[in-house]
Simulated scan of single mutants.
Amino acid sequence: MSTTHEELPVGVPGGIPVSTLRDLIDRHLHMPFPFRRNPHESVAAAGVDAWLRTWGLTDEPGVAAMISRTRPAELASCTSPAVDSGLLQIVANQIAYQFVFDDRAEEIGRNSPGGLLPMLCEGIAILRDGRPPRTLLGAALADLHRQVRERCTPAQAARWAWQSREYVHGLLYEAVAQSQPYLLRTRDCTAIRSLTAGVEPFYPLYEAAQPREPAPAELHHPVVRRLSRLSADAAVWTADLFSAVKEQQAGEMINLALAHQREHQCSLQAAVLLAIQEINATIEEFQKLHAEIEPDLSPAGAGYVQGMIGWIQGCYQWSRTVPRYADVTTVPAVP
């Protein structure tokens, strides 16, 4: 592992100055997809608040304030601009649930990875075996699973449950990594991040958004599967750029920019530029593969891939302004 790294020049083509770390990200990140928002966002925001209250989650300490800072309906709107109001509500509820689940897992796992087992095992039992919940958080998950089954085909709901279980398992990997004395290599961090991102569980919902179900040959085509992986990585790594300041202050490790900073022993600004290079290459590969396969996709398959594109541009749009990551504007562009 490299222990030193020559600082990358901080600036932009043409010498246009940038003042904050957010400006630096905006100048260098390649984002070719247009920004869109769902017209049903305000309805989804009210629905999320009501759903969280129904299951008693906003009665728990800190949850209401966290939801206010993260704006799950806004993220749903940015990532899912074309879905109908009913499906947008499921997306927004799922995002809110994952924020609550992730923050709680982080709090418990930081002290003891083993302490996560009851929480994670409950989630797996609900998703895999249909067992009744034991906690308020479990009850919310069971209701979310019900919403998905009612909207999706059995095959789509099964894919949703499988991807959601992958996300649950990823949180245990993250807790173990956080508790270890050694520093994770960047490739190990990205492997864990691909699980904890929680992006791919949403993709079966974009299957359900199509007038006709995409053919299995399209869903399982190697290029489409690669597009799924690339889009999830690009989306969550982009969020990592804006959350790096917050997560550095909290001592978190599973963040692409912070992984580059540890591995290369460089400034946060230089690490962000390294992460951006990786993200840009990922987006460019996505564009190339998408252009190759798009002529062969059915309308349903094309719509499904558009759902992946929504997460790439939506995470960027949301991350730039969400209060949860506001600290990115307090760090100068030049170290």
Rank of each mutant, 00 (worst) to 15 (best):
G86R: 06
G86P: 06
M66A: 08
Q89F: 00
S77A: 12
G56D: 07
N93D: 15
T54C: 09
A64K: 10
A73D: 07
A44W: 08
R53N: 10
W55L: 10
A73W: 08
E74C: 05
C78W: 04
H40E: 03
S80C: 13
E74I: 11
D84L: 08
P61W: 14
A50C: 02
A76T: 03
P72W: 04
G47M: 06
R53H: 11
A92L: 02
V91R: 02
G56W: 09
S68F: 07
L57P: 09
R71C: 00
Q94M: 15
A65R: 15
P61A: 08
A65K: 13
A65P: 01
N93I: 01
A76K: 05
A45Y: 12
Y97W: 15
G47W: 01
T79L: 08
S80V: 08
S68V: 13
T79S: 12
Y97N: 03
P72Y: 04
Y97H: 13
Q94K: 06
P81S: 06
H40Q: 03
S85R: 08
V48S: 09
E60I: 09
A65F: 08
P61Q: 12
Y97K: 04
T58D: 07
V48W: 05
S77P: 03
I90Q: 00
A45W: 06
A76S: 07
I90G: 00
Q89K: 09
H40R: 09
P61V: 14
E41S: 07
P39F: 08
P61K: 12
A65N: 10
W55Y: 15
D59K: 15
G56R: 02
D49S: 10
V43P: 01
D49I: 10
E41R: 06
A64Y: 04
R71L: 12
A76N: 03
V63T: 11
S68Q: 14
G86V: 02
I67G: 00
G56S: 15
A92C: 05
L57D: 08
A46G: 10
A76G: 13
